[in-house]
Design a protein around this nucleic acid. Sequence first.
DNA 1: CAGATAGGTTGCAATTCGCAACTTGCTTGC
DNA 2: GCAAGCAAGTTGCGAATTGCAACCTATCTG
Lengths: 158, 158
Amino acid sequence: MGLREPLRQLAENCSLPAALEAMGERWSFLILRASFNGYRHFEEFQSELGIARNILANRLGRLVGHGILERRPCDDDRRKVEYRLTDKGKDLLPTLVALRQWGERYEMSGRISPVLVDARDHRPVAAVRVMSHDGRPLTTHDLLWALPEEVEDAKAAE
Amino acid sequence: MGLREPLRQLAENCSLPAALEAMGERWSFLILRASFNGYRHFEEFQSELGIARNILANRLGRLVGHGILERRPCDDDRRKVEYRLTDKGKDLLPTLVALRQWGERYEMSGRISPVLVDARDHRPVAAVRVMSHDGRPLTTHDLLWALPEEVEDAKAAE
DNA sequence: CAGATAGGTTGCAATTCGCAACTTGCTTGC
DNA sequence: GCAAGCAAGTTGCGAATTGCAACCTATCTG
């Protein structure tokens, strides 16, 4: 990535701070993972993660506010509430898996942790990578930032 | 992901909390991104991100402590210090790009932001995805957690 | 040798976190 | 149908974290 992102508008024009505003707080990723693992109820999150109840309430509210989870009271037991992933929330899967794989590789010396496998053949999923439009793996040095108008689009190139 | 991660050892046996311990604090990802963009010096990070100096010092120290950045005094100007990505730090690229792409898609309504392109052909990189060992795209429902001993390894399968 | 510069540190106010106790609306058992 | 218990929060309060501004110490430059 030889070029600096254009002109110090990092904070204003970059989507990373925006993403972090939704997901950057202390427990958000762990709640998200619990959601992917099928947890849905306040008490489930609470006892599973050991998070303080007020913080959990705050984070769930925030995730709902950002459209990552959907809050729905249960019909069969009206004390209960379900928090479910929206499509927007489900689209955080690659981020979550990438972060987990990195942690697995670098931060788990000795310990073992369950691994994500393809349900079809029970083989581990591939490492999440940055790839070109046609599937070549890319590294840091293959990348540039470009403004939308500088981008070669598919039509021009094919 | 039909199955719950085995037996509520989420916190102990999962690499996600470990990863978040290294990268989960407020400014860590933004500092990381600045690093990928070529920023190396304290004052560069500070004026670019607008982060408070004490927090920046704390975060840089932490990232160095986790082996994500390397701290090296400059030879030519001994007031200066260089912070550079280690290989471990560079391996956070997929996580960073995945998060950015998600933010780009869902949190940038209206605004435009620079886009990551392949330096070779100036075409945008592919969306970061979770894929099977042989390159099929996988979604939430194709995934399971497995303990290492339950995994089909490459030898058995080929 | 008088600034200016790079990379911090320190003090202090404001915010956030985390724990424990409490509340409110439901549901279940007897 | 009433007491007990459960789900999903809220409240109060002390502890930790964040952020701002000022200061400090080496080093470089004119």
